Simulated assay, not measured.
Amino acid sequence: MNRIAVAVLAGLAVMSTAQAETYGRTERVRVLGSSSIEVIGRLDPAAKGSSLRAINVKYFNRDGGTWVRFTIDNGSVLPGSRVTLERPMLKDVKLKQRDGGVEHRPEVAITLCIGRTILETTLTVSDRTGYTAPLTIGDDDVRKLGAVDPAREYTIEPSCPAQAKVEPEPHDMPEPAPTR
């Protein structure tokens, strides 16, 4: 009889672990760099790729390549609500618009902390002010994370291990505090 009780309890433990690792459709995500910032991310298995809403997107040349400087704004009124990052542009992604035009978005490499998972990914950066979530995590990255329950939100706080912390990059800069 004790074996049955142990088996049932072990099964419940596995179920609760699996439940804890199921992400919601919307999660808090930490963008890692020398200055990290937390943003709201939408895990969207229907999206082809991942994208990040940024402001002040500027292209410049460094070391013979094209780089992108952009500011992430998480919408908070507290200090630290903006971070400016610089990344080498990996490629120019062209997106067809409904009106027939083409939008160019730079693709960059970035490291994210989602729950207890460090996700090194590439994503496009653009001013997506019409979107509610600043970060969309697309199909390829969602598959790396695991199960997503669209009925749930904010299931796992970003808490990546300290040893996984990204080393400061010489080109990441905190956004200057606004003058009042």
Rank of each mutant, 00 (worst) to 15 (best):
I137P: 02
S16H: 07
A109C: 00
E120D: 15
E27T: 06
F60N: 04
A147M: 15
D149H: 01
L43Y: 07
P134V: 05
D92Q: 14
P174A: 08
I137F: 06
P170H: 08
P79V: 05
T117E: 12
R87N: 06
G130Y: 06
R62Q: 14
E175M: 13
Y23C: 00
G24A: 02
D73F: 09
G41S: 08
G75M: 08
G115C: 02
D92A: 13
V148D: 05
K165S: 12
K94E: 13
M173E: 15
I114K: 06
A47N: 11
E167Q: 13
D63R: 14
E175F: 14
R180A: 12
I55A: 11
V31R: 00
V148T: 06
L78E: 13
A10N: 02
I110F: 02
N61M: 13
G11K: 01
T17H: 07
D92T: 14
R42G: 00
V83N: 04
G130M: 06
G33Q: 02
L12P: 01
T122L: 01
R128D: 07
K58M: 09
K48L: 11
T71K: 04
T122P: 00
N56D: 15
G146T: 07
S16I: 11
P174C: 05
D73T: 07
E103F: 00
W67V: 00
E86I: 03
T17M: 09
L90D: 08
S35W: 11
P176L: 09
G64S: 08
V29L: 03
